[in-house]
Design a protein around this nucleic acid. Structure first.
Lengths: 234, 234
DNA sequence: CGCGGCTTTGATGTTCATCAAGTAAAGTGG
DNA sequence: CCACTTTACTTGATGAACATCAAAGCCGCG
């Protein structure tokens, strides 16, 4: 836990990736207000950005890197709820309805993020209708994706789930058939409701069948067809 | 599909259950605007209120009754995403981010609901900051519950899932240990990712163990302790 | 009456979690 | 730097949990 905090220059928000999405509607003067109230932070891979059950300090926007949303249940079992990419609100879900974070946010790649005061965003919601609508659209889209993918996964058997998550990283995150997995085997298991041993087993199967090339964290998808097929049929 | 439509009198919205929640902040004049633009409809048990992939006509608020949100995947398998209770936005999830309903809404008890023009609500979001904040809180809460319960269920084995859903109906819906199940065995299966046969089997087990009394759709929970235990450890 | 849908139980095989054991890799302290 | 510990990864063997198949009873409905 050795995160640098820095107040970013007033102009930086003007060029931030968020601007094009949620903050598109903010006039410059409101954006500068936002700039002054926000703090830019860094988190190295593995570092915790927010902790489940801690009281919500502010809104967290991921600028660069990758983070997992996860929770630990009463019996100590960990589940990964989703993966946040740059320009995502992370911890968006409970922000408007809870006083505490429902999920931990942990960097799975070196990341930088902005933390914005809760009240600041709430004031913007109240005073800028276009902003409110954009925010609703954003939260709606995020929730929808999260629920949809979980329903998808629930229908699949283990082979299908592993195929699903490989396609997810290839298509949604890295936009390439070759990438380094940002998560351990254990984390893959937590992400798609499996056991570590079975994740390993099925990855080995895929390698044996020349569907993927895998060496440590490096993944190369060799046969997209077969992988998609596995994603559909179990 | 034999639903009556009626324009409800201008004053009715003033006393609607929603008023106390999402619409608490609307002044009377905005509420009357809302009243004029809305249509009150009825749906008998089994009737479809909205259909997956149909284009979104408006916001749907459940006033009375009970409805299921469900979807059918490419292979024709049906899943129930959640159960909507009175004063719920139904189909809330995709409303702000999609042009079509992501889920079908089907009455599982005789229900009445209001349909409000999309633009009307969007205008209110823009012009009434307090309303926008309430709406954010509502959508946030609903999404959160939906995702949370699905994560819970994913951790449980079949006995635990059945216990979970029985407790859900008892505690969240009927506030009683005695009630009539509004859903078929098949629908229970679709709700908690099981097969019909196993739902039946486990219900029979619970009866054998004197945990519940069950006769057709009538359920009586006899041993809350054991049921809660099953919910945690099964 | 006969048909189809819902419910129920039993038998069977598949899928998956668990246990066990071993290797590799990575951090820790002297 | 090396011995040591810990953590991640990997494979096999086993039994438990579950899906599937089959068959029969039930009920409502045309």
């Amino acid at each position: 836990m050795n995160m640098k905090a820095e107040v970013c220059p007033g102009t930086e928000c003007l060029t931030c990736g968020f601007r094009s999405e949620v903050f598109a509607s903010l006039p410059d003067y409101q954006l500068e207000e936002l700039s002054r109230s926000k703090v830019l932070m860094h988190a190295k891979k593995g570092e915790t950005i927010a902790r489940q059950n801690d009281s919500i300090e502010g809104f967290i926007f991921l600028r660069d890197g990758l983070a997992k949303l996860c929770r630990t249940n009463a019996e100590g079992r960990e589940q990964i709820v989703g993966i946040a990419t740059p320009n995502d609100f992370v911890g968006l879900l409970s922000l408007f309805s809870s006083k505490t974070y429902n999920y931990s946010i942990v960097a799975i790649e070196d990341s930088s993020y902005c933390s914005v005061e809760y009240d600041m965003v709430m004031n913007l919601v109240g005073s800028n209708g276009e902003f409110a609508r954009n925010l609703l659209a954003k939260i709606s889209r995020v929730s929808d994706l999260l629920i949809g993918s979980r329903l998808d996964i629930d229908l699949l058997q283990l082979r299908g789930r592993v195929a699903y998550i490989l396609c997810f990283f290839a298509n949604e995150i890295y936009h390439s058939t070759r990438f380094n997995l940002p998560v351990s085997r254990r984390e893959i298991a937590e992400l798609i409701d499996m056991r570590v041993e079975n994740v390993v087993r099925i990855l080995s199967e895929f390698r044996r069948d020349r569907i993927i090339l895998i060496e440590g964290t490096y993944i190369e998808i060799l046969d997209k067809e077969k992988l998609s097929w596995a994603k559909m049929h179990g």
